[in-house]
Nucleic acid binder design. Structure first.
Lengths: 142, 142
DNA sequence: GTTTTTGCAAACTGTTTGCAGGATG
DNA sequence: CATCCTGCAAACAGTTTGCAAAAAC
């Protein structure tokens, strides 16, 4: 699967690139470069710059899409339709997927109203996850 | 008006702070720190760090809200309800306001589904404005 | 074997912070 | 006049880039 995508993008199928694509495929969530780095097993040596470079070209080629999360960090995911967004916990940095994109339907309406050609969007919702909420509650009362 | 807000936030009404608030009030759009700096008239000396610091405390006090735009830069606006988001041109960096927030209604639904407590969100839509689209078109054909 | 890709270190951008001097109430 | 605020410069995080060594085809 990663081989096909890389061939399609006219890129050589290196171990690092295959790893990056497989993480994105497996986790099936938008990920930051840092998160991809952390996910690397001992037998795959990857440098952060390599991750950024790979994510960059794949985004240019239209294979990935890039969104900016609430901390200003870039997240990448496959350019499948429909794509998704994240609800991210501001305490533990965990996240859950929001499966349907609430913006998509808005776009054609916006194009009509403004004359702009809409090319993309960046959305992340921030909150506190149930676990962290519970822990904070506990800490406060002891 | 800025005096009242600053008093409410228990902050001293300095020239710089009054200027920052007045720009936000006048332009009535989410602005980056850089955009606020550029808007400063010759008679108001403001340093970027002062702008960041002011925007920071006012956000903590709940008077402003902060969103991250598609470039990863922070935008600030008054915490009015309903707040708004931007459709920003990726060529000239101009922007138009999207008046109703398409996320607000989603939040309670998300809280129910995920157990998260939603505390905020970050949204910006990217596109090309009519002027830039026209110019690009012209450049291509000459 | 030629070209592409990687790792490293150094640059870069937006943002934050420590500190001494200056303005505010 | 005590306190809060500012400007400056230096630190910081995330990201990008130049270059020599290494890997892919």
């Amino acid at each position: 699967m990663s081989e096909d995508l890389l061939e399609q993008a006219e890129l050589k199928a290196t171990k690092q690139r295959r790893f990056i694509l497989s993480v994105l495929e497996f986790t099936h969530k938008p990920l930051t470069a840092e998160e991809i780095l952390k996910a690397s097993p001992p037998d795959v040596k990857v440098n952060l710059s390599t991750i950024y470079r790979t994510l960059g070209v794949l985004t240019e080629k239209g294979i990935l899409i890039k969104t900016i999360n609430g901390d200003g960090k870039a997240c990448y995911q496959f350019n499948h339709h429909p794509h998704c967004h994240l609800l991210r916990c501001s305490v533990c940095d965990g996240s859950v997927r929001i499966d349907s994109c609430p913006i998509e339907q808005l776009c054609s309406q916006l194009e009509e109203q403004t004359g702009y050609t809409v090319t993309g969007h960046s959305l992340e919702i921030t909150g506190v996850c149930p676990d962290c909420a519970r822990r904070i509650w506990k800490d406060k009362t002891t």
